[in-house]
Design a binder for these strands. Structure first.
Lengths: 235, 235
DNA sequence: ACAAAGCATATTGTCAGAAAATTATATATA
DNA sequence: TATATATAATTTTCTGACAATATGCTTTGT
């Protein structure tokens, strides 16, 4: 019944499991699959109109990525995010992106930086008549650009796996940022980049991410995993 | 023929693929499987005396971890390590372990530190009549202990996946370190930990790893991915 | 009414083999 | 000889069926 409908997902340049990996990720970000949800291999296979094996392969791949947990003889579940995870995600992100900044100060061309500045100006211009979602997207774009400028593939891979979970956090808990502050912080980032001072750039990025984390927990949580600022950046 | 022999690998508390993941990793570290080698699912399954499916699952999991690359319709190969990879591994490791140090200064108990100091004394005592392999193992133990003290699961997971590749690097290219220097550096680490100064601790760790990297490329390579010290730590 | 035991169902784990794709080998043609 | 074409062999990919295990429900005994 729903077989023919879902077959559209298979643009299938490569193989089934490859597309199923993408499909499941997308469903998690959409909210069709929530953390803690069980994934039933047979059911998913039936819905997609294919057999069990490629579904299993996709799930095994995702378990390797750490997005899905497989309980032996019980089955796969979408990894749930605890409060502790949020702390870990942000703190890891801080050092990952910190190093990216450091490298970007050395590797970015003048044009790269000019483009970032232009993008920022646009972002600031439409600040007041724009949605929070759009702001988040723009923010994400800046961070991704910096990651790309670092030209460090393992850094990017690690970032992607975290970034996915960040998106999960944002989608689950929503986010109302004070737009002005958010925008200002990104100016700091770009200025630090333009100054081409690695030490300062790294510190700025770490502080930026620490502030995001603080904002997040101040809004949503009572108990926090914090251990104080000195766990995040220098003085 | 070799079926019954290899069956011993399956202590099999959970399921086949779980053990095959461990088996393949072990074979890579042993050198039975080298980077760039192809893995033929049917052959491996036949050798182990089981069917193809669990082998495939294990390989899919490993591809998720990034240890194996799957070329669609061609098959899995053990990911090869380029020179560039070595740079990326060390630099990523520097920030990962840097953060671990930072956290360890806050989370380690006095006893934890005392144990590390005791271990170090032992290590130094047997310095002269010990092999390089044994020294490397001791060094690894210290690093792993610090990771554990950080009590940061995502950090540890990232570290593990790098650590695996570090071991690959070491086994492929060998390593004759100047033992004395190597040992001294670890003293610095433990002292920084004992001082419980997060900033200093992080910097010490980063410098330590940077030095390892330098030692490595000075020994083996001509061309280097370096970009200067300021990419690694503050001044 | 409640708990334990046994049965039924659902789901995972494994298998053997067909279908599709790739690679290697051999044959034919210029 | 060299190049292209056809054929064979290998390997991946996928399927459908079955066994092993866990879960939920009913029955039974007290």
């Amino acid at each position: 019944m729903s077989e023919s409908i879902n077959k559209q997902f298979f643009m299938d340049k490569q193989n089934f499991s490859h597309d199923i990996v993408a499909l499941i990720k997308q469903q998690i970000l959409n909210g069709e699959l929530s953390p803690g949800d069980r994934i039933v291999e047979t059911r998913l296979a039936r819905e997609l109109g294919i057999s069990q094996t490629p579904v299993r392969e996709a799930i095994r791949h995702l378990s390797g990525e750490g997005i899905i947990t497989i309980v032996p003889n019980k089955g796969p579940i979408v990894k749930a995010l605890e409060k502790r995870d949020v702390f870990e995600i942000y703190s890891l992100r801080a050092v990952i992106e910190g190093l990216a900044m450091r490298m970007a100060t050395q590797l970015a061309s003048d044009q790269d930086i000019a483009e970032l500045e232009a993008f920022y100006d646009e972002m600031r211009a439409k600040l007041h008549d724009d949605t929070v979602d759009s702001l988040l997207a723009d923010s994400l774009h800046i961070h991704q650009t910096i990651m790309r400028l670092s030209n460090h593939s393992k850094l990017m891979k690690t970032y992607e796996s975290i970034s996915f979970q960040i998106s999960m956090v944002n989608r689950i808990l929503g986010k109302e940022s004070t737009k002005q502050k958010e925008v200002d912080q990104h100016l700091e980032l770009i200025e630090a980049l333009a100054a081409r001072d690695p030490d300062q750039a790294e510190k700025t990025m770490r502080r930026h991410i620490y502030r995001s984390y603080r904002e997040f927990i101040d809004m949503k949580e009572e108990d926090r995993w914090e251990y104080g600022e000195h766990l995040w950046f220098e003085k």
